[in-house]
Structure formats: structure tokens, C-alpha cells
Amino acid sequence: TEVPMTPPFIRGVINLRGAVVPVVDLAVRFERQPRETTKRTCIVIIEVDTPKGRQDMGIVVDSVSEVLEIPAADIEQAPEFGSRIRNDFIAGMGKVEGRFVVLLNVDRILSLEEVAVLDKLGQP
């Protein structure tokens, strides 16, 4: 369900087992063009810390191919890209079958103001 007067990266809310859960489009949040919704588009449910406690949040992703647990030994720190490029939302770089995957710090993806908007959406 779309919610009027919310930031463009908030797609709306869904009903998850009776709870109102805000849904964020990460492509738009990271200042990219929104992707077309396809059969493979999914909403991944995550928990984020808000000033009022933990809250479920949906993240729109292009697709999900597998869910992995990456051993700590296979996770490296986020590289420095220079002072003009933000990397505070990157928790690290995981090595999976010889390739790197970016691990997001979900608690840092949104600013405090944006979390407040999501917190209001999740309240009954």
C-alpha cells in the first residue's frame, strides 16, 4: 500500500502477520533509478534499530538466489574509496566462492530522520 507524503525511496507498507511493515526501495535510497518489478523481485524482511527499539522493515531487491552465512574469516573491512564517497553503510566485504559481495550495515542505511518516518509508518 502506498503512503502519501513519504520520501521517494519508501515504496509503502505491507501487512506482515498483522503488523504494518514499511518497505524501502534500496535502489532509490542509493540515488539510482527504480527497477521494474518482475516475477523475481522480492521483499526481504530485516530488523533495524530505531530510537523506539527494533522494527521490521522490508527491502525491495531484484531477486534472491540464496541465503548464506559467511564465516567471519571470509569478511574483510570495507575499503576506503576516498573522502568524497560514503562507505559508512558498508559493514564489510564477504568472500563467496572467489567473488566479493557487499555486506550492508542495515542500521546505517537510513538517516535518523528517515528512520523516524519509518518508525511512524510501523505504528498501529
Rank of each mutant, 00 (worst) to 15 (best):
E66F: 02
T37Q: 12
T50K: 03
R86G: 05
E69C: 06
A72K: 11
F81H: 05
V64M: 10
I75P: 00
C42R: 15
D88R: 08
I59H: 00
I46Q: 10
I46K: 05
I59L: 15
I59C: 02
Q77M: 08
I70M: 06
G82H: 04
D56C: 08
F81I: 10
L68A: 09
S65T: 14
E69G: 04
Q77T: 10
P71I: 08
G53V: 07
I70K: 04
P51N: 07
K39S: 09
Q55K: 15
D56Y: 10
D62E: 15
E76D: 11
A73Q: 12
L68H: 10
R35T: 12
I75W: 02
I75Y: 02
I70E: 05
P51E: 13
E47V: 03
M57Q: 01
R86M: 06
V48S: 01
T41D: 07
R86W: 03
E47P: 00
L68S: 05
R86Q: 11
C42A: 09
I85Y: 09
I43N: 01
P79T: 08
E76S: 13
D74V: 02
A73C: 05
S63D: 15
T50V: 05
I43P: 00
C42W: 04
E47S: 11
V48Q: 06
D56L: 14
I70F: 06
R35Y: 08
K52S: 15
E76V: 06
R40P: 01
D62T: 07
R40M: 12
G82S: 04
C42Q: 12
I59F: 03
R54Q: 13
S83R: 11
P34I: 07
C42P: 00
A72F: 08
G53H: 08
I46H: 08
I59Q: 00
I75K: 01
T37M: 13
E66H: 05
Q77H: 11
M57G: 00
M57R: 00
P34K: 09
S83I: 10
S63Y: 11
D74A: 14
S83F: 10
V44R: 03
D56N: 13
P71Y: 04
D88I: 02
I45T: 10
D49L: 13
T50N: 04
T37R: 12
K52I: 08
S63Q: 12
A72Q: 13
F81A: 09
I45Y: 00
N87M: 06
I59A: 01
E47D: 14
K52E: 15
T41Q: 06
S63H: 14
D56Q: 12
D62Q: 11
R54V: 11
D74Q: 14
D74W: 03
I43W: 01
I85E: 04
Q55E: 11
E66Q: 13
Q77N: 11
D56I: 01
P51W: 08
V44M: 08
N87L: 03
A78P: 02
V61L: 10
V64T: 07
D49G: 06
T41L: 07
G58E: 05
F81P: 00
D74T: 02
R84F: 10
V64G: 03
A72D: 12
I85D: 04
V48I: 15
K39I: 09
V48N: 01
R54L: 14
A72V: 10
S65I: 13
R84E: 14
T41M: 05
A73G: 09
R40T: 14
I43F: 02
E69I: 12
D88G: 08
K52W: 06
